[in-house]
């Protein structure tokens, strides 16, 4: 099957038009395989992607570009119990997950 999602990049363009990710700490809830994550995380200082689907997270981890591996992390968790102290992130993204 030759499925293509958003080849025009409208999602990425809209996201970057509205939000500046440069040097920001980002929490993404519902990161899945990292499809959206890798479109903004290069500019961030720290990105943490959460998803309860461990198979998807393995793919995200495997596909993580070398240049992002030091500041982009994935974890099996949900937004109902975020294992970070208060006031950690500049940006939280509910990525197709609310």
């Amino acid at each position: 099957m030759t499925l293509q999602k958003d080849p025009e990049g409208f999602e990425q363009k809209t996201l970057h038009k509205l939000v500046n990710f440069k040097d920001k700490g980002v929490l993404e809830i519902g990161c899945g395989e990292g499809r959206l994550t890798f479109k903004y995380a290069a500019a961030s200082s720290l990105t943490v992607g959460f998803d309860p689907d461990h198979d998807a997270l393995r793919i995200a981890q495997a596909d993580s570009p070398h240049t992002m591996q030091k500041h982009v992390h994935f974890a099996g968790a949900s937004a109902s119990n975020i294992p970070f102290s208060k006031e950690t992130f500049d940006i939280a993204i509910l990525a197709w997950s609310l």
Partner: peptide
Amino acid sequence: RTLKPNGILI
């Protein structure tokens, strides 16, 4: 809780 005071939710 985890957002800084000037943080945003997308």
